[in-house]
Structure formats: structure tokens, C-alpha cells
Amino acid sequence: MHFVVCLKQVPDTSEVRIDPITNTLMREGVPSIINPYDAHGLEEAIRLKAKVGGKVTIVSMGPPQAKEALKKAMSFGADRAILLSDRAFGGSDSLATAYIISSALQKIHETEPIDLVFAGKEAIDGDTAQTGPGIAQRLGFPQLTYAIRVKELTDTTVTVERKTESGRQVVQAQLPALLTVEKELNDLSYATLPNMMKAAAYEPEVWNFSSLPFDITQMGLKGSPTSVARIFAPPGRSGGEIMDGMKDPKGTAASIVQKIFQQNIIMVHPLSKGGKH
């Protein structure tokens, strides 16, 4: 089977800070990582390959530096990595990005038919969760988002457990299909040393604008219907009262509870037995 993993290199947003003077994003020194959700998609593809045989191809779009993420991804046991990188792709929103990636997948599909595409449920820098479904639509593949378990994979179908607010939905789709995945899908494994070495020596393929019959009007800023009009720091919630509970924990607790009831923040009524839900 041919598994394709869509993967994005992202700044580690847990390390992103706002510059206190200029009030802008401090991007310098923020490490780049593989989007964590994508890593779980890759893991699943590698596991399924080990089970049913086949090939794992990784596709990413980004600046030339994103090759590093691809090399790292290779170390988990993938077979091929392609980076879509061109100035013409820059400034693309999720609609345009899905167009570019789906075009590349289409080309791959023509020579090596794709069975299953994996993408993270969203990228941690944008959190849009749109590119995966966008790719599926463009390719005409069924999309199964928020996958937390691949229950079954046959030659023609994939059965997946999806996470929703009210419960888990078990859905079966015909192949080829696209899954976007949650972290619960699997636990990441460590790369073996031989795979690490293979990856260190591997040079990802780079496809640019002229590698495919791209339509320039569908990409970049001009091919993107949405654009950012303004960026600003989130409005803050102002802090309240800080109490020192070090010296007299009991007294502090008592006074806080008193205040809470005085202000009717929690009301005395039959919350009663309190028991678990």
C-alpha cells in the first residue's frame, strides 16, 4: 500500500513569545519542529506499512529550511520525502496551500497510486485545520478528520474512530482516503539507529513551481482569498487579588471561601451530596 504523509515544519509555539517592546512575535531562536499532530500521522503510516507492506512518502510545503524536518521525518522509517518549495508558493492561505499540495499528490498518484493520506488534525502555528480537508476535496478522496484510531485497513476500505464532542464515531471509507489525526492515535516510537543514518544521508527531493503544471493564479498571496489585516497581542484579562497563603493556609482558605459566598460566586443550594457525575 502507498501511504502519503502530509507534514509541516512549524515554529514550536510553546516557545513563541511576544516582544514586550515592539509587541510583535519574537521568531528568532524559536526552534522549528515537525507539527506534533503530523508526527502521529507519520507514526501511523509507518506502523501500517510494517503491518501490510508498502511505501511511505512524505510531502511538505515550506521554505528550503523545511528539508530538515523532512530529513528528521525520514528517520522514522519513511521511504521518500518531497519538499514543495518555491517563492511563488509563499503567502498562500489554506485554500491555496491545499491546491499546491493536492497538485503534488495528484502527480504522485499518477505514477504510484495513493491508498491513504495522513495529515495532522491541524498545525500548531495556524490551528486552522483546513489544509487536510482541502486536499481531500481537491483530490476527491473521502476525508475522515480527528481520527483517534485506525480500526481496520483492507485493500479497499479504512475504518476509523473519530473524536467528536459528544462521542466517538466509527466510520468506514473507501480507499483512497485522507485522515487527519489526533495525538491519541498512537504513541510515537523512537527511530532506530540504521534509520537515523539513512535519514542523515538522505536528501529530500525539492519540487518547485516548474515541477508541475501549476496554475499561478491559485497560489501565493494573489491566489489566496483570505489575508491578514492586522495582528495584535491578545487582550488581557486583568488580574485580581493575590493572597499569600504560605503562612496561614487555613485562614487564607477560610477568607477566600467567605468572599466567594459573599459575592454569590458559588451559591448555597442543594449542590448537596456532591457525588461524581
Partner: peptide, 17 residues
Amino acid sequence: RPAFGGNIMATILCRTS
């Protein structure tokens, strides 16, 4: 909407479609 893990807010327009 919030972006970059909630570090910033971005105002986005859909101007061309």
C-alpha cells in the same frame, strides 16, 4: 482569531471571493 498557539490575535479578511 487566535494564532501561534494563542500568542497573538489576527484579524483576517476574505477580500477576493
